[in-house]
Design a binder for these strands. Structure first.
Lengths: 219, 219, 219, 219
DNA sequence: TCCTAAGCGAGACGGTACGTCCAGTCTTCGT
DNA sequence: ACGAAGACTGGACGTACCGTCTCGCTTAGGA
């Protein structure tokens, strides 16, 4: 059983004791100012019009100071994202359906932020271009959501609402995919009703088999 | 912004010794040359590094000639896409599950084209940027696929494999979303097994209601 | 009878008449605007603080337009110089000494321009760095002065004031060198008295050879 | 490329340590390492491409350690120069012409050092920029040469080879100027023949007057 | 022996300018 | 009347140095 819990690390930063490089240490202040500037600029001008020059200028920082930390705009944005969407609480409403609805609402909230569309679409393009960026995003803000969701699903299995040997990845993609699809391709509405319907289909589609002995190996 | 160097190779494409007529030559020819150039360049350098200069150069065309036809890179690409993914046949395997599997395979084929990732991700960013582009893409290559899928689902309802009053949009997003999700976010595998599992969940989740009163013909 | 004539530069660029390249021709207006901007900026901020960005901005021109014409700041400045110091009239005062004094005065006028020091010293550094730039400067504003001086010296030989078979290069360097030396190394005064003394020494030192009969005043 | 700040010109004063201050004394070793690094780098990359970062790095020294001693690149280089060209012996060949030839050869040797061109041209630009640097150079490596030359000329006057009341400055500039002129402007050859010719012209041009009565004010 | 002050290597800091690239528009000439 | 060629303005890019400013650590003389 994997003991990885990426959800809400209680310690904050991994406090390295004293590897301490020589020279002047990097300014935490500058670091934070850059991230803040990036976030506010994205919200103002959108992701595509986001310029490194502008970020540096608004942060009151030299461009080199930005590039010293993030090689590309995308890795910078990815970290900004991560900072925003750090901890996703694991809901506990008493029922699997309720828990899933809470998770879906959290996702919808994210999608409904006017900044998200430009930001996330730019990030998708960046991830498609660079596996490094993709890794950063996945282990960043994606990991947290998915870990929380995984807990909910696990509890659902324990409750008997979901089949044994459930393919968690599949379940998560079934829950999250339609939102993404609507957001970026069809442009369809993303609302409570949609979320309710998706949860229902998934719960029904992944309910325990009536005849477990005939399909014990199924995933 | 995503940029990559693209000092387009001189690309010694032999100037077509076209029928040199005075007056009004090769409007259609130029049109097609531009689309071809765009497509081949996307496959070579990716969507983001695609430069109008390069397209015009490879097409053997002035930049103005490109802009005369398409105002933006995205509308040009959208038309190119449309040209590629024109007709989607409606499958007829005899069973709803079989038909859906065929549809899924067609989608997977598209996703598996190495060019698709860069192209589609760039397009997603462009759609997020501009509703006009979004419309073009939706009514273009998306519409065809969705229309075919709708036929299959309709037949599924008629067969009694899917519930009456089925929300087609929901069903389509449930089928297509997970692929998109894996493609661009999680990076998970997209294969026959996945497709099979998705179809199964959707069929089960959207099967006719078991409530006898609303389904009196069931025993 | 006015003998003042312009020394038409025999070294001037081969002004290509009309090989006529395709495409939009380069803008004469932009060309001139850039040179003017460069000149005025040099006078304002000095040669070293001269920035290509600033030149382009003041000229109301994109930086690429500047770089399309001049690869470096120095070649641009060299052309600007050439434009300023284009025509050097060949003096004709009736005596060799008088002619040389006029030439010296012209040089001194140049050196006394407050902008010259920074400009010429920067140019010297640039010439030392790049033979291409050196060539440009030599065939540019240097060539004109030297050609005029050569005429004067030639006439001096014809008049019998200077020795037959005179080494023109030597004579010119003897006349011009001390000015440069004071300007940039010793910082000594550059004035009429200096110019008079130099001319005198050179005339005496390069006078016709000391055949006793031709120098009856010698004891 | 020489660049300067528009704001706050640095103080180019060599910062000599006070007689006895508290704290750790400055490292002689570092001092020497910096000068050596500067000299070797000038020879390798030229004066203009000389970067303080590089000097510090090669010397194995922090940049602050460099700036603590020399406020500008030029003062540092000036001191390096001085260290190289320290003492110029006064020649004594028996004749004025011989002595002058020896002095000229020494100058030519300097000019012929491949490093000199870039170094001296850069220094000229720096001197034009700052009178303080100019002073440093003049009282540094220039002063030594000129003092030796002055001795030779003085002896020449005593011998009757040069006129009484000789303007030493003029004579020195006439001897040195042509070399500088060829070095940096015309690019002409600098060789034994040139040196011989210059000496000849100067000796002839500044020979004692044959008719002293016509110059009664001379002493 | 400890304290204080300035030195040390290292390297990050806010900046300026660089030279390149591309977007989208505007001319010129040739067909 | 088009079309190719390419110059145009404008602006972001990522790099290189500048001269200054911390860091943690010597290295001395004076307390």
């Amino acid at each position: 059983m994997e003991r990885r819990r990426l959800v809400s690390p209680p310690t904050g930063q991994p406090r390295t004791p004293a590897p301490r490089r020589p020279g002047r240490p990097r300014s935490e202040e500058a670091h934070h100012a850059i991230l803040s500037a990036a976030i506010s600029l994205i919200r103002e001008v959108g992701y595509d019009a986001l310029a490194m020059d502008a970020i540096a200028a608004r942060a009151g920082v030299g461009k080199a100071t930005v590039y010293r930390r993030w090689a590309t705009k995308e890795t910078l944005v990815a970290e900004a994202l991560e900072r925003i969407m750090r901890s996703i609480p694991v809901p506990d409403t008493g029922t699997t359906e309720g828990d899933l609805r809470v998770m879906m609402r959290s996702s919808m909230d994210m999608y409904r932020d006017p900044a998200t569309k430009g930001l996330l679409s730019g990030l998708i393009a960046a991830m498609a271009r660079s596996e490094r960026i993709a890794q950063a995003v996945r282990s960043g803000f994606l990991a947290a959501r998915r870990e929380a969701l995984r807990q909910v699903l696990k509890r659902g299995v324990a409750r008997g609402d979901l089949q044994e040997g459930l393919d968690f990845e599949l379940a998560m993609d079934l829950l999250g995919g339609p939102l993404l699809f609507r957001m970026f391709l069809t442009g369809g509405r993303i609302d409570e009703q949609l979320s309710r319907a998706i949860v229902e289909v998934v719960l029904r589609g992944l309910a325990p088999r009536s005849d477990t002995s005939s399909e014990p190996w199924r995933v």
